[in-house]
Nucleic acid binder design. Structure first.
Lengths: 230, 230
DNA sequence: GAGTGGTCTAGACCACGTT
DNA sequence: ACGTGGTCTAGACCACTCC
């Protein structure tokens, strides 16, 4: 008796047929029950395979209408966003960080807008330079709403990074991320590059329910590349 | 009789407990069987809920070791990479594109290296400027291996974009993507910006099995932001 | 109305990795 | 060795949506 058909088998075979254009873009593929008979497995096995393919955007599924090969595979890429220390150490370098600034101040309008704060309540601002083998790697500019995480004002931020402290002590939340490119400007000084150097920028805003927690701006030293596989 | 517990119910409740720090980062949560008893549902229902939470990076699961709340939850972001025309039209603007260049030429070493081509066989090079409401939006520089998709040499690339043609006519494949920032340089002319403007760059290389198909470099006009939710 | 995917169940076997 | 998650099965009911 042979091994049972796994959902991975089904997924691989369906993927093969799509790639080989046995089922070209837009084509209606057989129903779950039919495929289950063909592959000699349970319908739920086929279901899981097709569901996962649909999640990656390769298939379009609708009740009653059936399953079609997507006409424009909206490719989805999954980006891994590592903790900075781990990212640096994974490349074999030594991580070190310097707290350039740490104060309670009124946030500029742009920061308040991102956090959805209309009042100009004071925020904790921190600027940290991360170094890989003592070379500037990343400049982190963070604004924290102390109302959301009161304990942070007493945290030993000179020893543990704000990022790690928040992961350990703040309630988990969701937020958004934006990627863009900017000229270094005054940040070029800390990153040891020209003011007109093009830098990769990541901005992240997180909330706890409706309460804003933190806005972070990461400026990577020139040459940084974020990679992923689709 | 009440409705059965769905995997979404389980997912929501587990998420609530993580956020409320009932199960803090690093904590071992009860096993599937135990949770199934608590929620009065089948183990497979719990399994699906926990599996999906693990996929987003919120839980770490290992056989025998059990399921733990992830120590660094912000790890995975899913980027949608839309077809350029749709991206522009979705913002309410009109899409137009201009084919600036289209020729068969020997690829520079950097391009050959990305495609893994050691020989200097000639490639099809295309440079396309995409406009949103007649304003420069994106400069696309593409190199295609004609061996992989012979038909492209006869395609009406002045009417349909190479991207769309490939989606329709090439076998689907996987590849990799890199995001970075560069100075505009000579591309500033087409994009109507200064040569030292910081541009968001996306580079994508795709293969069909082991055969390289295409390398694309996208240079977005200044101010472009790629957004996602975590 | 009828066909398709979406999901739940109860049970089973097994792979893996910790112990 | 053994406990945990990973997966398959067979059957069932239901929701959605196209006709």
């Amino acid at each position: 008796m042979s091994q049972p058909t796994t959902y991975r088998d089904v997924k691989a075979e369906v993927l093969r047929r799509i790639r080989a254009r046995v089922w070209p873009p837009g084509a209606l593929i057989p129903g779950e029950e039919s495929l289950a008979r063909e592959f000699d497995c349970a319908r739920s096995t086929v279901n899981r395979a097709l569901r996962e393919l649909a999640e990656t955007g390769l298939l379009d599924r609708r009740r009653k209408a059936g399953t079609r090969v997507s006409l424009n595979p909206v490719r989805r890429a999954t980006l891994e966003i590592p903790v900075i220390r781990q990212e640096i150490e994974a490349s074999g370098a030594t991580h070190r960080h310097m707290l350039l600034e740490c104060r309670v101040a009124e946030a500029p309008l742009a920061v308040r807008a991102r956090l959805g704060l209309e009042d100009s309540l004071p925020l904790l601002q921190m600027q940290t330079l991360h170094l890989a083998d003592d070379r500037p790697y990343l400049l982190e500019d963070r604004w924290v709403n102390p109302d959301a995480v009161p304990g942070i004002l007493d945290a030993p931020l000179d020893r543990i990074s704000a990022n790690e402290w928040l992961v350990q002590n703040a309630a988990l939340t969701y937020g958004d991320i934006e990627f863009s490119a900017v000229a270094a400007g005054p940040a070029g000084e800390a990153l040891a590059c020209a003011a007109d150097a093009a830098l990769f920028m990541v901005e992240r805003t997180t909330w706890q329910g409706v309460q804003p927690i933190t806005y972070v701006r990461l400026l990577y030293a020139p040459g940084y590349r974020m990679k992923t596989v689709i």
